[in-house]
Design a protein around this nucleic acid. Structure first.
Lengths: 337, 337
DNA sequence: CTGAAAGCGCTTACAG
DNA sequence: CTGAAAGCGCTTACAG
């Protein structure tokens, strides 16, 4: 491979104006009433020479980079890395590339990331926002940059959102456990004010109320590691004798909770039934396999990308905000009766 | 936020030449013998106005995008998503952004991805190459684009590589199993010609030979799903009575293998000891917890990024190729005696 | 020490 | 139907 071809080289070699080449390359030949013959000749030449327009130059003059930013809590998490995989396919199919970054739920870090990405002029954002980042998100929207939030929303920011019906997830979970005759159903969740967590909490409370059961709740700090969570779970179970079912508000809480249950010598589901919020590919392999309230990952990615693309391609006006709520799947496996 | 400031606006407002502003912003004030006073004035002004240089324009004129491409087999895999997370921190700290994409081990798809990324003029590449992509990788190198391969290399492509001592991983695994008096140690691996897999295979064979044991090997197709793998594992164990230890060549194979062992009603480690290649965060939580030959993820990411950065910042000449082999950690847990 | 000018490789009115 | 020209927002010799 030698020096890269430019549109100028092509124009010179073919003795046409570079504007003509540009129009042809951008499919505007008809519109500009360029002869089919010329258009074909140029196209064929470019093909042969393997010409690839310099996207940087293109971006600079059009103001569009065909890049989107995927800003998640942590790219290595099961949920986010799977969303990333599904989004990738959709983005590439539509000519977009994805830059990812992890907020680690830190508004300060997120603020910086947004600034960095703005300097790169990415065309749109898909974000799981930490609380405290409202102003910056509004800043993006004010500058007419499309933003789709997902997983959790910010109550006073009006923008597109794609998320799970978290309320229904825990509600259905409790309903099912009640049907299997559970009497003391606990919730182990994060000490978090994020919308997805408050919704899961609310669904649990509402379903219990309907069956005149009393809530039994453990909230663990967000920053805990697996060991600490397992320890706190074990203590919680000892402190609340008679718990016969637990809903864990995330898949990782479930994993540490199960460890605790095992270490206490209790049987799943004999002594305690277990349902995890968010599926995980090991749940199916675990012994016993773990029942889960699953988020349909590909469906969610599809909706996320469609929502963003509609804005990017001006099929939907920026001001027209949509909220897409996806229904969870309650997947019953061996950890419930 | 209003119209974005450009370097021109700043030059006009401050009545200096825009070249002067550019030099100051790029830390070349001293070199160009610009007065400290002027430099400070410009810097302060930019600070106040929140000026952010347009990276696109900068890239177009410097030819550097400060973007790197992370091309892995599948971004949602445990190993790759964790490498992505660690790389992200390093990249951002050094002013780089990362575009990710997944090859799915398909050379055709990989070829396309490389072409797309070339048009974006990313500065460097970190790639887990599928077999069959040799020519394109060489093409990148020929055009003086730094490429660091990882996880597996391509025998006849001379470029930087960071990878695990896979041979030592399985070798040590067998050694340990022999110490626990295992007599019939099996290997369950992928039917793959990729270097990391052939090395793991070779380490297993060599260690067995040293102890005058006979290899017992199952190779499953790459494309299998969990269920199919579990089925083939179960059959394999039945066909080879007396297997008392299994090394699985990947963490996912281990998970399906364990499922098979459970379903056969065999006890781990009572009947069969298990070691998995590649750690997984559920291994610690599983019951019994799973012993693993772990790749130090952050160390690997660190070496990957350092190797690439040395090339990007011309601290190492492009032609000077390095091979960094990282030592595995044999983590003993409950699945071995 | 500073400024005018060309250039990076595209797009897109505008004129003919 | 086609071409000359300005512009996107930077960098960097070059001249003084």
């Amino acid at each position: 491979m030698n020096k890269k071809l430019s549109i100028n080289d092509i124009a010179n070699e073919l003795h046409v104006a570079k504007s003509t080449v540009s129009f042809i390359l951008n499919g505007k030949a008809k519109e500009k009433r360029i002869t089919d013959e010329l258009a074909e000749k140029v196209l064929k030449f470019c093909e042969e020479k393997g010409y690839k327009p310099n996207q940087l130059a293109k971006s600079l003059s059009t103001g569009k980079t065909k890049m989107i930013c995927l800003m998640v809590e942590k790219i290595s998490d099961y949920f986010f890395s799977h969303i990333a995989f599904h989004l990738e396919a959709l983005a590439y199919k539509n000519g977009y590339k994805i830059i990812y970054c992890s907020t680690e739920n830190d508004p300060e870090k997120t603020r910086e990331l947004i600034n960095l990405l703005r300097a790169r002029y990415v065309d749109g954002y898909i974000i799981t926002p930490p609380v405290g980042i409202e102003a910056e998100i509004k800043g993006l929207i004010n500058d007419n940059l499309p933003v789709v939030l997902f997983d959790r929303y910010l109550p006073n920011v009006s923008t597109d959102y794609v998320g799970l019906d978290n309320y229904k997830g825990t509600f259905d979970g409790v309903e099912y456990l009640v049907k299997t005759h559970a009497k003391k159903i606990a919730l182990v969740t994060l000490d978090s004010v994020q919308s997805q967590m408050t919704e899961r909490h609310a669904g649990y409370i509402a379903a219990l109320k309907q069956h005149r059961l009393k809530p039994v709740i453990l909230k663990v700090p967000f920053a805990n590691d697996t060991e600490t969570n397992a320890g706190q779970c074990a203590q919680f179970i000892k402190d609340n004798p008679g718990i016969d079912a637990i809903i864990f508000a995330t898949n990782y809480l479930a994993l540490s909770g199960i460890k605790a249950i095992n270490e206490l010598g209790l049987n799943i589901p004999g002594d305690i039934s277990v349902i995890a919020f968010d599926d995980h590919d090991v749940f199916n392999i675990y012994n016993p396999s773990i029942s889960a309230i699953a988020q349909p990952l590909d469906e969610m990615a599809k909706q996320l990308f469609k929502t963003l693309l509609d804005k990017l391609e001006n099929r939907v006006r920026l001001k027209d905000v949509s909220r897409i709520i996806i229904q969870p799947d309650l997947i019953l496996r061996g950890s419930t009766k």
